[in-house]
Amino acid sequence: MNDAQPHEAVARPRTAAGLLLLDEEDRVLLVEPTYKPGRDLPGGYLHAGESPSDAAAREVREELGIGPPIGRLLVADWAPHPAEGDKLLFVFDGGILPAGERDRVVADGTEIGGYAFHPADRLDALLAPRLARRVRAALLARERSTTLYLEHGVPRP
């Protein structure tokens, strides 16, 4: 790209970051947003000037009232949405949430109506297909101690 190109030619994706949190049984924490149907990972859109890891930490604090450490990046997913345009989505490793920390989780009631830990083999039944693929990829990346680049939730070589 050169500086002479118009700004319209530059991608400006909506960017969001989420956190993969597990319990001691390797179940995945999913939240129930109040503003859309279905379940999701805790997280949300970045504010202007905010890094993806800072956004993940802020969103988890705001939505669930906890501040787990934000670990390494598990996946980056290029996932344009027909109705919402270009999207770049990050998932970070939140690790295993100890029982004492789980006891402090409180859904904010504004953006998040509830939450629960779910077995990984239930993800396809609980999540939209593109999100289920992303979460399964994040679990794989965590297991392999790697980071995966995805497009629509599908790992690219």
Score class of each variant (00 low, 15 high):
residue 1 M to K: 15
residue 2 N to S: 12
residue 2 N to T: 11
residue 3 D to C: 14
residue 9 A to T: 13
residue 14 R to P: 08
residue 14 R to G: 11
residue 18 G to W: 00
residue 21 L to V: 11
residue 24 E to A: 15
residue 25 E to Q: 10
residue 25 E to R: 11
residue 25 E to T: 09
residue 26 D to I: 08
residue 28 V to F: 01
residue 29 L to W: 01
residue 29 L to R: 01
residue 31 V to S: 03
residue 32 E to N: 15
residue 37 P to F: 06
residue 43 G to Q: 04
residue 43 G to C: 04
residue 45 Y to M: 14
residue 46 L to Q: 03
residue 49 G to V: 09
residue 49 G to Y: 07
residue 49 G to C: 05
residue 50 E to Q: 03
residue 51 S to Q: 02
residue 51 S to V: 02
residue 52 P to I: 08
residue 55 A to I: 01
residue 56 A to S: 07
residue 61 R to L: 13
residue 62 E to R: 09
residue 63 E to R: 06
residue 64 L to W: 01
residue 66 I to Q: 02
residue 69 P to E: 12
residue 72 R to H: 12
residue 73 L to E: 02
residue 75 V to M: 03
residue 76 A to F: 12
residue 79 A to R: 11
residue 82 P to V: 11
residue 82 P to T: 05
residue 85 G to P: 11
residue 86 D to A: 08
residue 88 L to N: 06
residue 89 L to E: 08
residue 91 V to D: 05
residue 93 D to A: 05
residue 93 D to H: 12
residue 93 D to P: 02
residue 93 D to T: 00
residue 94 G to R: 04
residue 95 G to Y: 05
residue 95 G to V: 03
residue 95 G to M: 02
residue 96 I to S: 10
residue 99 A to H: 15
residue 100 G to H: 15
residue 101 E to F: 08
residue 102 R to Y: 06
residue 104 R to A: 04
residue 104 R to D: 05
residue 105 V to T: 05
residue 106 V to Q: 11
residue 107 A to K: 02
residue 108 D to W: 06
residue 109 G to P: 04
residue 110 T to P: 09
residue 112 I to W: 06
residue 113 G to S: 04
residue 114 G to S: 15
residue 117 F to N: 03
residue 118 H to I: 05
residue 120 A to N: 14
residue 122 R to H: 14
residue 122 R to F: 14
residue 124 D to E: 09
residue 124 D to L: 08
residue 125 A to L: 15
residue 126 L to C: 10
residue 126 L to W: 04
residue 128 A to R: 15
residue 128 A to S: 07
residue 130 R to V: 10
residue 130 R to W: 14
residue 131 L to F: 04
residue 133 R to W: 08
residue 134 R to C: 03
residue 138 A to T: 05
residue 144 R to M: 14
residue 145 S to D: 11
residue 147 T to H: 14
residue 153 G to L: 08
residue 156 R to Y: 09
residue 157 P to A: 12
